[in-house]
Simulated scan of single mutants.
Amino acid sequence: MTLAKICGLSTPSTLDAALRGGASHVGFVFFAPSPRNLGFERAAELAARVPDHIRRVGVFVDPSDELLERAAPHIDTVQLHNTAPARAAAIRGKLACDTWAAVAVRTRADLDAAQTYAGAADRILYDAKTPEGASLPGGMGIRFDWALLDGFRHPLPWALSGGLDPGNVAEAIRRTGAALVDVSSGVESAPGVKDMDKIAAFLKAANP
């Protein structure tokens, strides 16, 4: 059984599609520049629809304490992008919840950053490094070479992200052995617009 997170959900219908399809995690983005950004009222509405056995993941980019505190009632897990290990450790200690740290990957050397989160996070999310100057740290449909993970000694439990979609997720799981996969733009019809059929197809492909 491969766990699967559908990230960047913003409507009841697409959230329900993820739940129906068997997602283990659902992701809510709290980052204003993102087309998937949620206000707290909508986040509360969506979070209330999620059964207790499904994890609600809040996605943040080097967040302030104020943002974390306002989002905290609606999430079970914090996913941090562009956040230094010391800051991640402080957030983990303060919120006392499952904490994921994203590591942006383009080369094998990029994987070394994973080691710095040992003791600071509970899980590493390997994501594709976005181009220089990109406004978003993820959710752009870019993938990295999965062969970079061959033989790598992971310091923590980990998840695979970056450019996954219904057509390649089964191959990604076979190739990397990922126990958890994460998708956002790969199940959209336009930036920030989730597609219920693509969500269903992704989840079926992840667990045929």
Rank of each mutant, 00 (worst) to 15 (best):
A48L: 13
A48I: 01
A48W: 03
A48Q: 11
A48Y: 02
A48H: 08
R49N: 04
R49H: 00
R49S: 03
V50F: 07
V50T: 10
V50I: 14
V50S: 09
V50P: 03
V50Y: 08
P51N: 09
P51F: 03
D52T: 01
H53D: 07
H53V: 04
H53S: 00
H53G: 00
H53P: 01
I54D: 05
I54M: 01
R55F: 06
R55L: 01
R55N: 14
R55K: 13
R55W: 01
R55I: 01
R55E: 12
R56H: 06
R56G: 11
R56E: 06
R56C: 06
R56T: 13
V57T: 09
V57W: 00
V57Q: 05
V57Y: 11
G58Y: 14
G58H: 10
G58A: 07
G58D: 13
V59N: 04
F60I: 07
F60Q: 00
F60W: 08
V61P: 03
V61R: 08
V61Y: 09
D62Y: 02
P63R: 00
P63T: 14
S64I: 08
S64Q: 08
S64A: 15
S64K: 13
S64F: 15
S64L: 07
D65V: 12
D65I: 10
E66D: 15
E66S: 15
E66R: 15
E66G: 09
E66H: 09
E66I: 09
L67I: 04
L67P: 00
L67Y: 05
L68E: 10
L68M: 15
L68P: 06
L68D: 07
L68Q: 05
E69P: 02
E69I: 15
R70V: 01
R70G: 03
R70W: 01
R70M: 13
A71N: 03
A71M: 04
A71L: 12
A71Q: 08
A71S: 02
A72Y: 02
A72W: 14
A72E: 10
H74V: 02
H74N: 14
H74C: 12
H74R: 09
I75Q: 02
I75C: 03
I75K: 07
I75F: 08
D76R: 08
D76Q: 11
D76F: 04
D76M: 04
T77C: 12
T77P: 00
T77A: 09
T77L: 07
T77H: 04
T77N: 03
V78G: 04
V78N: 04
V78T: 11
V78E: 05
V78L: 12
V78H: 03
Q79P: 01
Q79D: 02
L80Q: 05
L80T: 01
L80G: 06
L80A: 03
H81E: 07
H81C: 05
N82I: 13
N82C: 15
N82V: 01
N82T: 06
T83G: 13
T83C: 13
A84Y: 12
A84I: 02
A84T: 04
A84S: 12
A84V: 11
A84G: 04
P85G: 08
A86M: 08
A86W: 05
A86F: 10
A86T: 03
R87A: 06
R87M: 13
R87T: 09
R87V: 08
R87N: 01
A88T: 14
A88D: 14
A88Y: 13
